[in-house]
Design a binder for these strands. Structure first.
Lengths: 326, 326
DNA sequence: CTGAAAGCGCTAACAG
DNA sequence: CTGTTAGCGCTTTCAG
């Protein structure tokens, strides 16, 4: 039933090498070419990418590890990476790990012998360094990681200066005469901690009180803000390391009849599309997802195709993108 | 440099078949097993998934076609599908097509000879039927499509009754004494048109005026609603076939000091996580993304692993999930 | 321009 | 339990 290159060759009365040449756009005499074309059309033959892959030692496929594709940050990253990789001739396998070590390990084991390289999005994946036997799986292929560094031969790091981003945001609020600025930390990976440091640094420099709240729930901004309003009544600004938390904060403030942007400023992080849908629209730190994602894809392609690569990390700086909330 | 099964066999002083048996957890005498294990560990050997795939005629990989992974609906679908497929032993290749025919064609050609099956999310992909030569690419593998049917041998359809969903929502508003209900149609694929039909049907049955507005911009809800407020001042309810449009509508209404949920009701569609972040929270049609996505994954697995399959379409019905906006 | 033959790394009879 | 052998479907020398 399944047609292969031998079938085509015999029916077109030529050799498999000639069919192979035809398939790879090499020189084939017009009449031979015509016969091959007819047989291929007749049987609707498609060469096996797997067999091709065995010879080429590559399926032109890359795995992208994210925490959860439903979160706008990862969805954006996956979108831009897939887009860029497609241009560069690679397919994208998506791995939703939920940040769970067991899931990460399972995906790495399954995928590492099938892909040409791996992109890890997010500092959670630094955890892998603690498990040498897991690391061993990716020792043969190039990897790119954002906001981190893996202890393997061929690893490229793409950094986004999260700390500086939140520092900038905090400074901005201080300049706008905000004095009671709270920070809501979401999760506790390396990036989350750095962001918190940025807040602390700016507040300390200005000799202002530090007030940090925590949540691990992406939709927990509302609840945390209710706590803030209860425990820190004169709050006049809230910053969060994640847009969705900030949007939750806006909702809570509005429910308490606090005019967001005036009575209390709010700044988010990631600059996801939802900033524009928030009411009022959210001011947020733009952490250059598109640029950094494209850099991930391009760097990995370089590493896959050349033994040598520039292992100097790439760093992107954040900017504030203004909405109505601050 | 690259180690293969021959290297392991010779260094462990046994045959490749024995190594193969070891790798596939078959019976191997303890001492032989031990030698093999040592050599494998020494060289950090990982069997090639590609070579395995060539023999098995399968890489245990599935392609999922979406319009844009950044849209919550597709992100959710991709998440649940990846999750379910992972449980079933398959990897997920993601294809962001933006709904562009050329991109769809390109991805199909690249991917069809590499994957065990394809899942198409969304009625846009019905367009493929118009191009027999594209269809020819997927004639050898099983496909699953939501809200559509492709003219290939092995196609399973998973439907979500969008029309009924919007019909239900409209009826509900009518029962709540809303009389000037507008509908905002987003994009114009089969599903979008069906939703509009659901609205029309309910309005006609109740002898109420039909007012349909259009946008192709996922973030265009704000603008359209401004138009509505200008041209149809006594509007008392807005329904949209997409949550983000509805959230934009809420924003516009609020800006005009119209109390959403009281003066004007708003109902969205998809029941994405952002319903809860909206201010006020959005009432929306739950179109069972999790259930239908799992059904996609399971159906495709059945089709991949069995020549026979139940080609009866599966249909899911929508429910209203209440927030504060209606 | 074309064909024969070797090989990519693994699995699966088959005979021992 | 183990080794030999023949593929899986393609690319790539190397002669012709």
């Amino acid at each position: 039933m399944k047609i292969n290159i031998y079938d085509i060759a015999s029916e077109a009365d030529t050799s498999i090498s000639t069919v192979s040449r035809y398939l790879n756009n090499k020189n084939v005499r017009p009449d031979t070419r015509k016969r091959i074309e007819e047989v291929i059309a007749k049987y609707n033959y498609k060469p096996s990418a797997i067999a091709k892959g065995l010879v080429a030692h590559s399926l032109k496929t890359v795995a992208v590890f994210v925490v959860d594709i439903r979160m706008p940050h990862y969805a954006n990253a996956a979108y831009y990476i897939d887009n860029e990789l497609a241009k560069l001739g690679y397919r994208t396998i998506i791995c939703n790990t939920r940040g769970e070590l067991t899931t990460i390990v399972k995906y790495i084991e399954e995928v590492s012998s099938q892909v040409d390289g791996i992109i890890f999005i997010g500092s959670v994946f630094n955890e892998i360094n603690r498990f040498p036997d897991v690391l061993a799986n990716i020792t043969n292929i190039p990897v790119v990681i954002t906001n981190g560094k893996l202890d393997v031969q061929r690893c490229k790091s793409i950094y986004v200066d999260d700390e500086e981003g939140i520092y900038k945001a905090t400074k901005y609020l201080i300049e706008k005469n905000k004095r009671n600025i709270c920070y809501i930390q979401y999760s506790n990976n390396v990036s989350a901690l750095k962001k918190t440091e940025g807040y602390k640094k700016a507040m300390e420099e200005a000799n202002l009180p530090i007030n940090i709240y925590y949540t691990n729930d992406l939709f927990g901004g509302y609840e945390v803000t209710e706590n803030i309003l209860f425990s820190y009544k004169n709050v006049d600004a809230i910053i969060s390391g994640e847009d969705l938390i900030a949007i939750g904060a806006i909702r809570a403030l509005s429910c308490h009849n606090i005019v967001v942007g005036k009575d209390c400023a709010v700044i988010g992080f990631n600059c996801s599309q939802y900033c524009e849908l928030s009411n009022p629209t959210l001011t947020a730190i733009d952490n250059k997802i598109e640029e950094s994602s494209i850099a991930c894809a391009q760097s990995l392609k370089e590493m896959i195709e050349n033994e040598e690569f520039d292992d100097k990390p790439i760093t992107f700086n954040c900017e504030i993108k203004f909405g109505e909330s601050a």
